[in-house]
Structures are given as structure tokens and as C-alpha cells.
Design a protein around this nucleic acid. Structure first.
Length: 502
RNA sequence: UCCCCGAUAGCUCAAUCGGUAGAGCGAGCGGCUGUUAACCGCUAGGUCGCAGGUUCGACCCCUGCUCGGGGAGCCA
């Protein structure tokens, strides 16, 4: 029996005969030779089948084998730059385990809804595969970052009795007759644990019943939350900066091939180095209302318009070519495909062009005291190449547990981290209010029942210390790093508002 | 909850002025010894989302509904 090898290990078996176990990803028969693209979970490999080198009936069976059929192939490994992984297999023998017919996901384009309806199969496709591997690296990098720095993992409950983030977004659960809800954050529990271990983190699913139908929202997502005793805002910023840098570095070193396949912005990721940009909310507001921001928006608008004109010109040319006729059939088809592409790009540009003045106006009319809107965040992050910290938001715009800045009571000691290139928020965090009376007052102001928060208040009665932490959304981080526009492609089985596919 | 866009073959899309539909991919068959979402030829595949209205005539115009996409608010 030939040695079983995984595609990722082929480089160590040059010129040897090996056996791959996998699935047929694509095939290109070409008369007396066939090219089978086989995937095995670790990668993709081109397998060459030449007529005469294997039995004729096997050759024929392979020629008619459907996409995603399961099979084993044996043959000699050789280097081949034209093969996806750089190595190919010259097939000497093959065994078909199950011949699949009419696999629904073809090698061409599909709509997002169709793909999610077939998510159980779509996971096998190249893009979800790349993203899933990067997600794995991101999660591993996060755990290592905290474990290497003496953080203790504390698993906080998923059924919870208290709200952390606003009560409208809770999923309620009937817990043997008692109404509980699914966790929105482990933070409050984590603060309790931090007073025991000093530095802690939790990592788990988070549930928010936000009625947000956008490409940035899931109702079930994964979040890592560190919490540290004896830390100030600067310490938190450094921690967050270090975490994000180490995640990006790990992905750059472990998943470069996947980033390339996805067409991610590798040069942009390489610029993610400390120090990140640090702005206070007040400075951010000044930037948004400044002439520079308006200039920036105008430049963007003219850029969009230039792109639009270029696309329209190309469209006209293609249509003229088509009307003239005399094109080969494959050229016609290529043109038709390009036309569809241009139209969808034009649609998107049109939206951007329409939104630009609105966003510019929103930014210009920004008044101190408001929370930063999505478009404001986009402008701020587009104006900088590196991630941007925004700190010291107005108290009114933020959660009750955030510590009031003692030197300016109108603001709290919090921060958001905006990923670059217009991606938006991936981290939110704060120093926590550690004074009993102030915290009690804030709970009352929010209209919450202090009795529900009795144990949380207790933490301020017994050895209260300055402490704080933050939450980083895994899917948003993965979406930013991979350049994926839909957050729902960044988790295997996404849960959306009003829609759970599988 | 609100605003914008869409629904045509299994999938992705086209159909000029209102005159009962057309490509590619996929599937099936055939051709091709180095392909790269291969290519070339042939075949099959449709209650144009649902209900109503306008009209001699509706994929096309109008109303309602259902489903989907994008965005706002809110957030990681």
C-alpha cells in the first residue's frame, strides 16, 4: 500500500509514490489527459491522469466523475508551478469511494442567499476554506497572546441574570420558569474574577438581539474579553494594540497563501504596527467638522466619479463591440460577463456617490455629545492607514459601568478601536467605575434595579481597585483581515436577524 | 421600526417601444495530450415570486402580499 499523505505535506515527498484521500474539486478533461483538482482539507492539488497509464475503464470513470465525489488517488509527486499548491500528482491508480452527481455549487458565481442555504456544502469551497483557516489562526493567536502574558481563562456563564449592554438587545430564555437571558458580555462576571486572579479573559459566544440587517452584524458572534486589575486607560490601549498586532502578524506568517487566494490587502496588513493612531472623542469630532474632512470627502467623491466614468466608458465600448459583431463566441461571453460585473460595480459606486454628500454633511454637522455614527467611523478610519483608537466619549453615549474621567466629568475613560480602510469598529473597552456611590448612581440613572446588581456593587465594597478591559469581535476581526465584505462568511454557521439557515 | 433596490431555467444574469423568453455555468452526449472558473459542437431544461388591476395584448405599467439584498438607528 502506498503511503497516505496530506496535500500540505507533499513538499516532503517529492518523486515518491503517495496516496491522497480527498474530494474532487474540479476536473478538466482534455482528450487523452485529464487534470483533476483534488482537495483533502489541507490544500488543493492538481492530479494528472494520462490515458494508457491507468486502466481504460478507470480513466473513463474519472472522466465522468462529478464535482465533490470522494476518491483516493495514488501517484508520483512532482513540482509543478502550474498546480495550485506548486506540486502535482501523476496518477497511477485511483479509487472512487462515492460518485457525486449534480453538486449544487458550481465553479461559477452564486448569490449570498443561495450559498448560505447550502452552507453545509459551501464550507468546502475555496473562499470559506481560506477564511475558516484564518479564523482558526486568529483564535489561536488570541489565546496564546493572553496565555503568554499570565492571563487566566475564566469561562463566564451563557445564561445570565444581568444585562451588560442595554436591555433591548437581550434574548430571553425560559429557565425552568425563571426568565434569564443569553449573555451579551462576560464582562461583569469577569470583573469579579479579575479581583481573584488579577488578569483574566473569557472567550465565548455572545448573543445580541439587535435588529441590524447589515454586513457587519450577527446575532450570535464570538468575542474575547480581557479584564485586568490595576490598569489605566493607557495600559488598556497598549494591551489592545499588542493583541491586534500579534493577531495580524500570526496570520501574515501562517496564512499568507490563504490571504493571497482571497485577494486580501497584505500590504495594508503589514502596516499594522505600533503605535496606532490615538484620538480623543473631542479630537475626532474636531477632525470630522474640519475643512480637512470635507476636503477628504470631496476627493473621495471625485475619485468615485472618475471610477464611474471609466466603467461607463468601458461599458459603452463593450456594447459597441457587441453590436458590431464579428466577435468569437468565447469573446462575446467574456464581454457579457464583464458587462454584468461592471453593472454591479456601477450600482455600488452609485450608492457611494449618493451617500458621500450625506456622510459629509453628517460629519460636518457633528455635535459634541453624539455617539460616532457608522459613517463617521468610516471617515476617520479612511483618513488613517493604521488602526485608530478613539477615547473619552461623552458619558451620555456610553454604558453605565464606564468610569467617569475625574479630570473631565463629561466624558468616560473608554475607547473604541477602528480597523483601517473604512472597516470600522472591532474593539470596544473601558476603565470601569470603581467607586461604589458613583456606580450606584449610574445604575439608578439608567433605570436598572440596583438589587439585580448587588454582587456587582459588592466588588466596589471589598477592595475596589482601578480596573478595566475590552471586547474584541472575532468575526469582525476576521472580516477585516481577510477583506471579506460579509461578516456571515466569517463564521461556519451564521445566525442573522430573522434568518437561521441551518 | 424606517428608507432604497431586487425576484426570469438547478445557478449567475439578459430581453430595446407593452406584442407569450435568451446566453453562460451546471447536467447529458461527442471532440481535443498541459489545462488553470480550459476550450469547441450537439441535447435536455421555463406557470417570468404570489394575488389582483389597466390593456385588444403584460416579464415589462399600477396596487397589495411574500421572500431576498443594501443601508439608518444600535453595536463587536
Amino acid at each position: 500500500m502506498t503511503k497516505r499523505v496530506r496535500i500540505a505535506d507533499l513538499q516532503n515527498h517529492l518523486s515518491q509514490e503517495v496516496c491522497l484521500n480527498g474530494w474532487l474539486y474540479n476536473s478538466r478533461p482534455s482528450g487523452k489527459v485529464q487534470f483533476l483538482i483534488v482537495r483533502d482539507g489541507t490544500g488543493f492539488c492538481q492530479c494528472v491522469v494520462e490515458k494508457g497509464k491507468i486502466p481504460d475503464d478507470l480513466y473513463e470513470a474519472l472522466e465522468h466523475l462529478g464535482q465533490e465525489s470522494s476518491l483516493s488517488v495514488a501517484g508520483i509527486v512532482r513540482a509543478e508551478p502550474r498546480s495550485p499548491g506548486g506540486y502535482e500528482l501523476l496518477v497511477a491508480d485511483a479509487q472512487i469511494h462515492q460518485a457525486a452527481k449534480d453538486y449544487p455549487i458550481t465553479p461559477k458565481e452564486h448569490g449570498i442567499d443561495f450559498l448560505l442555504q447550502n452552507r453545509h456544502l459551501h464550507l468546502r469551497s475555496r473562499r470559506p476554506w481560506c477564511i475558516g483557516r484564518i479564523r482558526h489562526t486568529v483564535i489561536d493567536a488570541i489565546r496564546r497572546f493572553f496565555n503568554d502574558r499570565g492571563f487566566i481563562l475564566v469561562d463566564t456563564p451563557i445564561f445570565t441574570t444581568i444585562a451588560g449592554e442595554g436591555e433591548q438587545t437581550l434574548f430571553e430564555v425560559d429557565y425552568f420558569g425563571q426568565p434569564l437571558h443569553l449573555t451579551q458580555t462576560g464582562q461583569l462576571y469577569l470583573e469579579s474574577a479579575a479581583m481573584s486572579f488579577g488578569r483574566v479573559y473569557c472567550f465565548g459566544p455572545t448573543f445580541r438581539a439587535e435588529k441590524s440587517k447589515t454586513r457587519r452584524h450577527l446575532t450570535e458572534f464570538w468575542m474575547v474579553e480581557p479584564e485586568v486589575a490595576y490598569i489605566d486607560l493607557n495600559g488598556l490601549l497598549e494591551l489592545a494594540e499588542g493583541l491586534v498586532v500579534s493577531i495580524v502578524q500570526r496570520v501574515l506568517s501562517d496564512n499568507r497563501a490563504e490571504l493571497e487566494m482571497l485577494g486580501a490587502d497584505i500590504a495594508g496588513l503589514e502596516k499594522v504596527q505600533p503605535p496606532f493612531v490615538r484620538l480623543t472623542y473631542t479630537q475626532a469630532a474636531e477632525i470630522l467638522t474640519s475643512p480637512a474632512a470635507q476636503e477628504f470627502m470631496k476627493r473621495q467623491l471625485s475619485e468615485f466619479q472618475a471610477q464611474k466614468e471609466a466603467l461607463e466608458k468601458e461599458l459603452t465600448q463593450l456594447q459597441e463591440q457587441e453590436n458590431k459583431g464579428g466577435l468569437k463566441k468565447w469573446q462575446q461571453e467574456k464581454n457579457a460577463r464583464r458587462i454584468v460585473e461592471i453593472r454591479s460595480d456601477l450600482d455600488e459606486l452609485e450608492t457611494k456617490i449618493q451617500n458621500n454628500p450625506k456622510h459629509a454633511e453628517l460629519a460636518a454637522s457633528f455635535r459634541w455629545g453624539k455617539d460616532l455614527g457608522g459613517s463617521d467611523e468610516t471617515i476617520l478610519s479612511l483618513m488613517h492607514e493604521k488602526p485608530v483608537f478613539v477615547t473619552h466619549y461623552p458619558k451620555e453615549a456610553k454604558a453605565f459601568y464606564m468610569k467617569a474621567d475625574r479630570s473631565n466629568e463629561r466624558v468616560v475613560e473608554n475607547f473604541d478601536l477602528l480597523a483601517p480602510a473604512g472597516f470600522g469598529e472591532i474593539i470596544g473597552g473601558s476603565v470601569r467605575e470603581d467607586d461604589y456611590d458613583r456606580l450606584l448612581k449610574r445604575i439608578q440613572e439608567e433605570g436598572y434595579n440596583p438589587q439585580t446588581y448587588w454582587w456587582y456593587l459588592d466588588l466596589r465594597k471589598y477592595g475596589s481597585v482601578p480596573h478595566g478591559g475590552f471586547g474584541l469581535g472575532v468575526e469582525r476581526t476576521v472580516a477585516w483581515i481577510t477583506g471579506e465584505r460579509h461578516i456571515r462568511q466569517c463564521i461556519a454557521f451564521p445566525r442573522l436577524m430573522d434568518k437561521v439557515y441551518l
